[in-house]
Design a protein around this nucleic acid. Structure first.
Length: 271
DNA sequence: CTCCAGGGCAAAT
DNA sequence: ATTTGCCATGGA
């Protein structure tokens, strides 16, 4: 959903329903944002700033997290190696849910392929200097999609059904980020999401972590998480729930960040 | 060929 | 209340 060119992020988003193309570049101690396409005014510029702060989690003080990591025998290296890395969130809850349903039980490479097809077929886009910048499909668009069409794009029948029914929940305003945020606590949010077909505990926690940025939302059972915990000798058995719970007990308040860093540790190092 | 990927559901124990 | 079969596909 974004491109990186010359060490700058290019991303198209909707701000107040209007498409805007952003370029985010790094300077010494601040970010420089350019609006490449769109009609900026004060209100839009301000909303863009809020969006980026939310998206890249820029308001969070990571020092307490690095303190916690540095005390951990196996993970202390991360405070150095991944210094400054923040959770890249998915502000659009609908997108987060579609992605987590898509990614269920298949390898990530294939999951990315499916998402690309979904975005290219149903999403809008901005064209700028002969390049296309995609915007994730609206729930309204996917609510009207034909499940057979998703099936032909190699979504499983169940995933096609789940995604379209989730889109309909959004389209009929039975589900939204605002509705979830209005609930009293994490448990209530998990419960509401899990009442939807296709959303189990993993999907609920993933979406809550990525979109609502719940700091204690742990995607228990996640294949990548378990693999990373094994690699770091934090657990010896993927089925040993006690070891896993004990680990997250130590990381209380920063569970999501630890998961995010563990996932990052699995990524192939460039070069 | 088999196993497993950033799971969840429904049927069968 | 737990376990199992199934979904779809591709890489190891």
């Amino acid at each position: 959903m974004h491109k990186i060119v010359d060490n700058k992020i290019l991303k198209a988003i909707l701000i107040q329903g209007k498409p805007v193309l952003l370029e985010i570049g790094g300077k010494a101690n601040f970010l420089e944002i350019r609006i490449l396409s769109g009609e900026p005014n004060f209100e839009i510029t301000s909303a863009i700033k809020d969006y980026i702060i939310d998206w890249l989690d820029l308001d969070r003080d990571l020092e307490p997290f690095y303190q916690l990591l540095s005390q951990h025998s196996q993970l202390s290296y991360m405070a150095e190696e991944f210094h400054g890395l923040r959770i890249i969130s998915t502000p659009d809850l609908f997108e987060a849910l579609c992605w987590s349903v898509t990614g269920q039980q298949i390898n990530l490479t294939f999951a990315y392929k499916l998402k690309r097809r979904l975005v290219e077929k149903y999403g809008s886009h901005i064209e700028f200097e002969n390049r296309i910048f995609h915007i994730f499909p609206s729930h309204a668009r996917l609510a009207g999609a034909d499940p057979a069409e998703l099936r032909s794009m190699q979504f499983s029948s169940k995933k096609a059904e789940y995604i379209i029914s989730i889109a309909k929940l959004f389209a009929t305003e039975q589900l939204s980020k605002e509705i979830l945020l209005s609930l009293p606590d994490l448990e209530a949010r998990q419960k509401m999401l899990m009442s939807v077909k296709g959303i189990g505990i993993w999907t609920a926690n993933y979406a809550l972590m990525k979109s609502l940025k719940e700091q204690s939302s742990i995607p228990y059972g996640d294949a990548g998480l378990l693999q990373a915990l094994l690699i770091h000798n934090i657990i010896t058995d993927k089925k040993d729930g006690l070891q896993i719970r004990n680990f997250f007990q130590e990381m209380r308040g920063w569970e999501s960040y630890v998961v995010f860093y563990l996932w990052r540790s699995l990524a192939k190092k460039p070069g």
